[in-house]
Structure formats: structure tokens, C-alpha cells
Write a protein that binds this DNA or RNA. Structure first.
Lengths: 232, 232
DNA sequence: CATGTTTTTATTGTATACAATTATACATGT
DNA sequence: ACATGTATAATTGTATACAATAAAAACATG
């Protein structure tokens, strides 16, 4: 049987539904829509030049993502992401990245480990040169490799979701050289713990790594999130 | 503004889409459909006496839940849940319940704490009498109270998803009196750690609690999962 | 003027029609 | 026999029509 790309997930960018889904999600995450704003199928369809059908499907999916709340027979309403939500996601990710690192200790393949090593070495080079785009890309790759290496469909799915989520919210992750270098040192330590099969250490390091990433983001105010100081 | 029940989430049981969604999900989780089986919109619609539209929407949602894989222009295919997936979910939950307990230490309200205490006392009573249905219900309630008390929309959403997921997969959670009693003792310990505001302890206890629940389930073979010994 | 009731309008929910895409069956040439 | 091309059928993707529901407006009544 043919194999299809699991990573692609929902956002098949070439169907109308996929494009509508992505568009609405980005509009919500970028703050174009306010919290609790009503999303009318007809208006969005007209705006994007499509019929209501793909819009409806996209809205139903966004509900599952938690970005939209659907009230039967009434409509779809934006559930915006707050600064607190971002913080929560980072803390959730810190636990789950830790778990992924733990599992990777047992399940990582030779190829995956090599990919990680290569990543860390390359990142060191680019950090020295101040190549920020490459650093960001390598950071993504490192984490994706970890998600693959943990050998868990469920955990991988979850982590990729959150990872993409945050990519859209924050402006630039590793935009300071300092953090880029520090981050890569942490990557190296995680990799080495995995290589050594030290699950407890790997979990702890990966968890700390995520907390540090959050602390850095806060320190430099690197996020787009409009402050809904809601008492959710 | 009127408040709508967040817990209800997607499965508004009174729209066709909601019912179709629930039906297909249950059919997948109960093993009626085999792994990789194709789910044709027309057939399902005919079987349930509805048109393709609500079926399509339901399938798109199930894709987000990870139970269905949609290949553009080809169709929807079942992604069955394996015994390993169940194990993974328990481990993921162990981390996240721990986090919920940690956050509950800071955010739990007087009412919620009281609800928990009541729950634990009641469960003790029913455990003594061997009332298994009540025990199961109280177990659900305890965890839901914890999810509310952690004061995180994101974490709550995630944990409820997994909780429901597992409810459908396993036959009976607390079906042995022994586990019921032990489980409730753990609930009490978690509650007391939260009351004392001891975040580290609460996180550790809640995490252990979930691991124990899993160990018990395995010990008694209490799950429906058909063994797809797939090398995912 | 406030309040309750009816009518109208707007919007979502579902079914269906048609277009686009993919799979299948069969023929043809090598 | 096997690969390749072509016609046909099956299936999904999208648009639209109509039904059900809820909101808004208009109206009546005390």
C-alpha cells in the first residue's frame, strides 16, 4: 500500500478547505479577529471567493483546534489565544518534550541520531556566523527529529500541533544570537543524554530547554499576543 | 453574554453532524472498522440515513482527533488505536495530570477544593460498599474537578479529550475493588498536597496516580484494544 | 412607555447537483 | 505476457437550493 505523508496532517494546502482552514487560523492567531467575534460562513466565503461548504468544514475543524467555538444553529465564534495560553502551551510542551526525549532514548535510530548530531554541528557553525534564518530552521528540524525519534504517533502528533501553533504566534524565536547559542548548547546536551540512553537526564534537559525558550521569549517580548487579560 | 457549555465540545448530540461524528468515532474505537479501512461518505450516509454533508464534516473532524486519515481526492481511512497508543496516552496523561495538579495548587478555589474533599469522602463510602458504578462516576468527577481547578483552558481541553478517549477504549476502569480503594487513597493524597499548596508533591502524586491506573489496567487486561502489533 | 406577540429577516443545517479527480476495465501494440 | 493508453465508472470536492432555527424588527396592547 502506498504511504502518505503523515506530517501534512490537515492543512493540505491545495484543497479549498485546506486553504480556508489555514487562512482563518492565521487570521485568528495574528489577531485580525477579536475574541468572541462571530465568523459568518457567507461573509468569509465571499471574501475568499468560495462557497459556504469549505468554510463550514474549516470552521468545524478549527473548533477541534480550540480556536473557534461553535454554537448550534447560531454560529462560530473566535476563541482567541491569550498570553496566558501561550505560557500554558510552553509548560505543556516542556513536559511533553521531556517525555519525547525519554522515549527517544530507547527508540532513536542510528540515522536519527546522526541527523541530530549533524544538526547540532551545523547550528554551531551558523550561530558563529550569525545566520538567524538557518538557526530557526535548524531549531525546527531538531525538534521534529526528536518527535520522530520518540516513536509515538500520539505524542508526535500532539507536539507537532503545538509546535506549529507557537510558530504562528511568536514573531521570531531565536532572534537573539545569545539565545541561539544557548539553545544549541541545550540541544547538544539533550542529544548526548539520548545517545547515552540516560532517560531521566534527557527528560529533564528537554523539559528545561522548553522552559528556557519561554523565559527568553518573555524577556524580549517576542510575541504577538494581544493581551486579553481574561479571567478564563 | 450567554454562557455555553464548554465541555460539550464538538459532540453536540442533537445535530446530525454531531451524531454522525459520535457514531463513527465509537465504531472506530470499538473495533468495528479495521485499520486502514476506507470510509466512504456515500455508504455511511446511506447507512445512517443522512446525506453526505454531515458525514464529510464528521470525517474532517475525526481527522483532527487522529482517528481518521484523509487523503485528498481519495478518501478517508481509519487510523485505529493500538495497545501502544493507549499506553502512550496514559504516559502523556501522567505528565499532564501532574501539571494540572501543580497548577491547581495555585489556582484552586474554595468551592473546588470542597468538591474534591466531598468526592474523596463519598468514594471512601462507596468503596466500602462495593458500589462500582458510583466509584467510576466519582473517579470521573475527581479528574474533571482537577481539570477545572488547574485554571488552564488549554490543559483542560487536552486532558478532557484524552479522558474521553480512554473512557471509550477501556471496558471498566475501576472494576476491581482493590484498585478502587487504592485509587481513592491516591486521590486523597493528591487533594491534600493541593490543599497544602505543595506543587512538587502534587505533580508527582498525580503523575504516579496515572501510571498506577495504567499498570492496573494492563494487569487485568481491561482493554478492548485489538492488538495491532504495528511497528509505528 | 414598557411589555409581550407576531412578522420578517438573517443565518445555519442538510440535501442535492454538478465538476474534478481518481480508480477500474479493457483494448492495443510490443 | 506485459506495459501503456483510453474509455468508463466510482468517489470526492465544491456550489447551490431549500428547510429549520434563531435573531431582529415591527406591531399591538395594557
Amino acid at each position: 500500500m502506498r504511504e502518505y505523508n503523515i506530517t501534512q496532517d490537515v492543512s493540505d494546502r491545495y484543497s479549498l478547505r485546506g486553504r480556508v482552514f489555514t487562512k482563518i487560523r492565521d487570521d485568528i492567531l495574528s489577531g485580525r479577529y477579536k475574541d468572541n467575534e462571530e465568523l459568518k460562513e457567507a461573509r468569509i466565503g465571499k471574501e475568499l471567493g468560495v462557497s459556504r461548504t469549505p468554510v463550514r468544514e474549516a470552521l468545524r475543524q478549527l473548533e477541534l483546534e480550540g480556536l473557534v467555538r461553535i454554537v448550534p444553529n447560531r454560529g462560530a465564534f473566535v476563541t482567541a489565544i491569550s498570553a496566558k495560553d501561550v505560557r500554558d502551551i510552553y509548560m505543556i510542551r516542556s513536559r511533553l518534550e521531556g517525555l519525547a526525549a525519554r522515549w527517544a532514548c530507547e527508540h532513536i535510530s542510528k540515522d536519527q541520531l546522526e541527523t541530530m548530531e549533524e544538526n547540532v554541528y551545523l547550528a554551531e557553525f551558523h550561530a558563529g556566523k550569525g545566520h538567524m534564518e538557518q538557526m530557526a530552521e535548524l531549531d525546527n528540524q531538531f525538534h521534529h527529529t526528536l518527535y520522530d525519534a520518540c516513536n509515538s504517533k500520539m505524542l508526535r502528533h500532539l507536539l507537532i500541533d503545538y509546535h506549529e501553533y507557537l510558530l504562528r504566534v511568536r514573531k521570531k524565536a531565536l532572534s537573539t544570537i545569545d539565545r541561539g547559542t544557548a539553545s544549541n548548547k541545550e540541544h547538544r546536551a539533550i542529544m548526548e543524554a539520548i545517545r547515552a540512553g540516560n532517560a531521566d537526564l534527557a527528560e529533564r534537559l528537554a523539559s528545561e530547554h522548553m522552559k528556557n525558550a519561554y523565559a527568553n521569549m518573555v524577556k524580549f517580548g517576542l510575541y504577538d499576543v494581544y493581551d486579553n487579560t481574561d479571567g478564563t
